[in-house]
């Protein structure tokens, strides 16, 4: 019989990679299609996903519940640590703190993001029919644009830095050299994934 303490933390790590991390990549990639314009986006991105077989099942079990678990258990991990960057100002110690702060930031951002898109679309027919225009309106508002930009960067950071620590948790990177290589790789991934995300946001304005 496995100890639940160990299992919970490992499931927390696994869920952060798959499905949550995988969904993040899918989500940003799909949204980068905003550059093709209103009709293409509404038809080939939003409608196509909404017409997926058992989409509600996928939304609940592959997106909502895993994020909820990762977030709630993440808060448990958050309270279990005690930052000491003032004494030990090493890079990785700062990253440790940044991972915790970004985790809380991502939860707040997701609350705003999910209510303002998916949940709003449940009863708002106009939003459901034309997500492209809705997003364009939202992002035109600086009060939303700035939190969206910050939320995006926090999310991609949390994911990429999490990739690094997951590589140690699961025992992929054992030597300091391997951990360094993954640190550089996750840094590159952070830049690329963030660029894809910003590209998706810009697409709502630059689309022909």
């Amino acid at each position: 019989m496995q100890n639940p303490h160990f299992l919970l933390r490992r499931v927390h790590s696994l869920v952060g990679l798959v499905p949550v991390g995988a969904f993040l990549l899918f989500h940003l990639w799909e949204n980068s299609k905003s550059r093709f314009g209103q009709e293409h986006y509404n038809t080939y991105v939003v409608e196509k996903i909404q017409n997926l077989n058992y989409v509600w099942f996928l939304e609940v079990f592959l997106i909502a519940l895993p994020i909820l678990f990762h977030g709630v258990y993440g808060m448990v991990v958050f309270w279990r640590g005690k930052q000491n960057v003032t004494h030990y100002g090493y890079f990785r110690n700062w990253m440790w703190l940044a991972q915790r702060i970004s985790g809380v930031g991502v939860l707040l951002f997701l609350l705003m993001h999910v209510i303002g898109t998916r949940i709003l679309a449940i009863w708002n027919e106009a939003v459901r029919q034309d997500m492209f225009s809705h997003m364009k309106n939202v992002l035109s508002e600086p009060y939303f644009l700035v939190p969206y930009l910050i939320g995006l960067v926090l999310t991609t950071f949390h994911f990429c830095n999490g990739l690094w620590s997951a590589s140690i948790v699961w025992g992929l990177a054992t030597t300091p050299r391997a951990q360094k290589i993954i640190q550089v790789a996750s840094g590159v991934a952070f830049v690329v994934i963030t660029a894809v995300g910003i590209h998706g946001m810009l697409g709502f304005f630059l689309a022909s």
């Binding site: 160990f6 090493y90 990785r92 110690n93 440790w96």
Partner: peptide, 19 residues
């Protein structure tokens, strides 16, 4: 170490190896 207070309580701040 796969139980309460075990390996999974490490979150790789990696101060240990520095000090």
């Amino acid at each position: 170490i796969m139980s309460d207070g075990g390996l999974t309580d490490c979150s790789s701040a990696q101060n240990c190896v520095r000090v």
